[in-house]
Design a protein around this nucleic acid. Structure first.
Lengths: 207, 207, 207, 207
DNA sequence: GATGAATGAGGGTTCATTCAT
DNA sequence: TATGAATGAACCCTCATTCAT
């Protein structure tokens, strides 16, 4: 028992250090990806920016690809957290409000790190995935599908898989394009208007 | 003066030859992009596949980037031709049919060269453009906007710019994702169903 | 004084532990050398396989080279033990039988760990040695020289140093090549025939 | 006809240039291998020493391994040329003289570039060959076998394959070891003595 | 002692681009 | 104008060795 306080912190410290290094690498990668693009994101540059040696980079990531994947995963997880939070109580809302909240969540998700999102969604060599956007993930589909089921009585009869595809793809495209391409040039009211329109698009489609 | 008749044909021949070389290079680039991906598409390989020397490649294109851009442009132009053809008589059609034809045209456009489209839309370093999809181009917006104006009386009042953005973006995303990700796994009927749904999505939204 | 009985065993234990670590390192090195070749035998991998840290490796061996040298030495010592055992009573035998036993011993020596022998004899960077095969060592020469002296009356007059060189080198080459290259493909009888021939080679030469 | 003198030299010049580059690379590799050992023979260093860029190295050799293989091949070919020349008229000689010439040829072969031979025969990662020494090659076996057949009536009955193995392996080992390890320390007379002994070894064995 | 995270020089290799022919 | 050999910076990654804990 006496040794635990001694051992634990040490191990913890080491774990903390490792974790810090890993985080620094992921963050450095993200920043370089944003600033210089995929082609200029060399492992040496990343390591340097992270304040560690290349060797350390390869201690934590077996390849450059793995590092990029970690960046994607982290970003994706952050997005999904925003979406999850926003959709937590969506089942209880009247449908139109629910959809509106959903669209707003999609916009917020894209605003987590738009510059990074742009690079990740456009510049990264595909790694033989089945579906579409890897940043979206199956979870989004599942989430929306659940929402559809919860509000089933308010909708017309339609293949739920197909409807999910239509809605998720449309919302993603609209919010993605709007945030990534027009964030700088459009006022906030424009986004309000977009939310209105996107909500109308989805609600009318489902009803 | 006497030499002109002599020079002209020669120049003409040379121009033809130039055009053939340029075409061969663009085509070779497209094929290598599809077969081996962006990273493996080296200028040397492209030149070899095109049956010319690297030197010649640089005679016609100042950089690799310019060559890629030419591929994009050619592909984009092919897409647009499909869209233009399909939309030629859309103004005369009843709205729902018009939208349906429009969606079908979008699918066909994506089917021009899906493999190339995938590479071009996902893997190409952005070259600092303002708008969104470079493959789509401003023309699509203009085309749809014209369609909207032509059918103005059938629609509710709505900011036409915003409506165009919503419709074009949605249709593009739906057809793009469907063709690129599910062409191999889905039967043709599924695409019919998709056309139905996409049409419904747009028509209800606009009405 | 009271602590000595306590310290000694501890020290002993520690020495035992050291010896075990050293052995584990040498063994791990040998196994990796065999399995993956010289180039892939990194100190980190060796330490891992030995179940110790790299740091410990460097506690016992000042460099990778020293570790390799230790592997060579251990292997060489094992070889020599086989040879020594086999040659213990060779002086008492009639010459032809003696030579035969000698050749057989050479084959057995090469069979101690042929895979390791191959790597050690072929792939290891020379470390500025004087003689030839470091795995053979001066002892072999001495052993054979003694054998020659013991049977002096049965041989023709010849520079014993030269004769030793001729015999040892020939036997080594024949048995080495046979075991390392043909062990897998030749039946045991072939080795019997080889022993016959090698014996004849040496006996006729010396007589 | 008029253009031929123009064209040929150009092409020839280019071929000469290529050949010169290839030769320079092989030669530089050999020299570095000798001077610094296998581990220090990096492609960049080789290219530098050859007076060309690394890129050029890879234009002519697909990998470092291929370059090393070319060095081996060139050296091996030089060796074999010495052996071939020396053995051209061996069939006509009385057996003992023939064997003596053969041994002398082996020594001369090893003297072509002893330092290089040492590195090549000891340090090169085996490339999964069946037989033994890659520098020797099957040709040596064939050559000796032919010699054996030519002098068949002078020899005792023996499996010619086995006899060839015994003789070639022994001669190779003796001359190899002598030249590589004792060239610096032994006078020329010692080599004469060695030739005597090796000849005796083989002749007595075969008779 | 023992640990193993960290180091960073250096490895093999690629490729956009140039330029003498 | 066409050629393609040549360039060399830059890439991803490895590994012997060190040192704070």
């Amino acid at each position: 028992m006496a040794r635990k306080p001694l051992t634990k912190p040490r191990k913890h410290a080491s774990q903390q250090r490792s974790r810090a290094t890993v985080d620094a690498l992921i963050e450095a990668t993200a920043r370089i990806l944003v600033k210089d693009g995929f082609d200029k994101a060399s492992t040496n540059r990343i390591a340097e920016k992270a304040g560690v040696s290349v060797g350390s980079l390869y201690q934590y990531f077996p390849s450059k690809e793995a590092l990029i994947a970690a960046v994607m995963e982290r970003h994706s997880e952050e997005l999904m957290q925003v979406v999850r939070d926003a959709l937590a109580d969506v089942a209880a809302l009247p449908m139109e409000q629910a959809v509106r909240q959903l669209v707003a969540a999609a916009i917020n998700a894209h605003r987590v790190d738009p510059a990074l999102h742009r690079v990740l969604s456009g510049q990264i060599p595909r790694t033989g995935r089945t579906g579409n956007n890897e940043l979206l993930g199956a979870e989004t589909y599942a989430l929306f599908r659940a929402f559809l089921d919860a509000h089933g009585d308010e909708f017309r009869a339609v293949d739920p898989g197909l409807a999910t595809f239509v809605c998720v793809t449309s919302i993603e495209a609209l919010t993605h394009t709007a945030v990534l391409n027009y964030s700088d040039s459009l006022p906030e009211e424009a986004f309000e208007a977009l939310i209105d329109e996107a909500t109308r698009l989805i609600v009318r489609y489902l009803r």
